[in-house]
Design a binder for these strands. Structure first.
Length: 349
DNA sequence: TCAATGGGCGCG
DNA sequence: AAAGCGCGCCCATTGA
């Protein structure tokens, strides 16, 4: 019996059909993940036909079977098994679980599909209550600007106000009035690459631009924000001189891998972003919002409140999440949904 | 039968 | 010069 969950068997079957697999896992096995299967099935990232080749029916079937199983059994039935007698789920929040200091949550509550509301729709507020979510806006870019003291980025955030779009600002800064939405996408990728330490190849793959274009954009990015590289070098040196341990602004000790020292930028950003959310949560507690809080999700607080109070509660959450970090404004935006979590993202209930 | 590991996939 | 970061949970496989 061939199983879709067995990469070995899927790889064997695909090569037997004449497909050529090249990507390898860390241990040397042939990869059969989504990035490999989607092109074989002639599908793009959104599962739309590309029209570049005849779809391989096995690749297509494996993709659909995996998704159906994950959503149906792992999420839906998995949740049912975790409910208490009142139908509630009780995740455990570990406030400092990650190596970066990030929080984590059990029961997969941080990992529910967000692009499609079908799973999140199953999580409900009390009767007559609605879901509220409040997000920190572009928190990692703001934190990077604050920690690395990036002059022109800070200027943007300071002048930009609440709806400020850092990536559009960067595109305009570098390309002037000629900046296009495509430029914004490319520089967004470049900024992402800075925060995560991504290479040219990775950014190109994610943005769909050519490597040459990305290389050019990253170089321009470095000229516009030279402080980022300087901070990265400084943090790496600091870690080297301290037994490969980076000490964050609040004194948290973050061990780094020798062969991935560049990750210190990401560690610094994730850690500081976590502290911003933590500070906000302290403010929420002293502002009487504890009874509405449901789940922290890295840059967001999920809450629920009686319908009639939702607007006030949402405003209060925004206020608690608004602060200044080394002169960089930290801004939040709350959204009021319906009774289900899924309704927060445009779904009808 | 059980624990550990690798591969995979969802999120921010 | 080059480098995606961090989780939790699932299944299949492997080795006691």
């Amino acid at each position: 019996m061939t199983k879709v969950g067995s990469g070995t068997q899927v790889a064997e079957a695909l090569t037997g059909m004449g497909e050529t697999l090249t990507d390898r896992t860390d241990s040397g096995a042939l990869k059969t993940d989504k990035a490999v299967l989607l092109p074989l099935a002639d599908l793009d990232r959104d599962w739309q036909r590309i029209g570049a080749r005849d779809p391989n029916p096995l690749a297509d079937a494996v993709l659909r079977a995996k998704r159906a199983k994950k959503w149906g059994e792992d999420y839906a039935q998995g949740f049912m098994a975790k409910l208490d007698t009142a139908g509630r789920i009780h995740p455990v929040i570990s406030p400092l679980a990650a190596r970066t200091g990030r929080m984590s949550a059990t029961d997969g509550l941080h990992q529910l599909p967000s692009s499609d509301y079908v799973v999140r729709r199953s999580i409900l507020a009390e009767p007559e209550h609605v879901m509220v979510s409040s997000d920190l806006q572009a928190i990692e870019m703001r934190v990077l600007a604050a920690l690395a003291d990036v002059k022109r980025m800070k200027e943007g955030f300071l002048r930009g106000g609440e709806k400020f779009d850092i990536h559009a600002y960067t595109a305009r800064l570098i390309k002037g009035d000629a900046a296009t939405p495509r430029d914004r996408k490319v520089f967004k990728g470049a900024g992402f690459g800075k925060v995560y330490g991504g290479g040219i190849q990775t950014i190109a793959r994610q943005t769909g631009a050519t490597e040459a274009e990305i290389a050019h954009a990253v170089a321009a990015y470095d000229r516009a924000f030279p402080e980022i590289k300087r901070a990265s070098t400084r943090w790496q040196r600091q870690a080297f001189q301290n037994d490969m341990v980076f000490v964050s602004a609040v004194g948290r000790r973050l061990p780094l891998d020798r062969d991935r020292i560049y990750a210190v930028v990401n560690y610094a950003c994730q850690s500081a972003a976590r502290d911003v959310l933590g500070q906000a949560m302290i403010e929420m507690e002293s502002s009487g919002l504890l009874e509405y809080m449901r789940l922290p999700i890295h840059d967001e607080i999920l809450a629920s409140a009686p319908k009639g109070d939702a607007a006030d509660v949402a405003r209060e959450f925004e206020r608690c999440m608004t602060m200044s970090l080394y002169g960089v404004p930290i801004v939040a935006e709350a959204e009021i949904g319906g009774r289900s979590w899924g309704s927060l993202y445009g779904a009808s209930e």
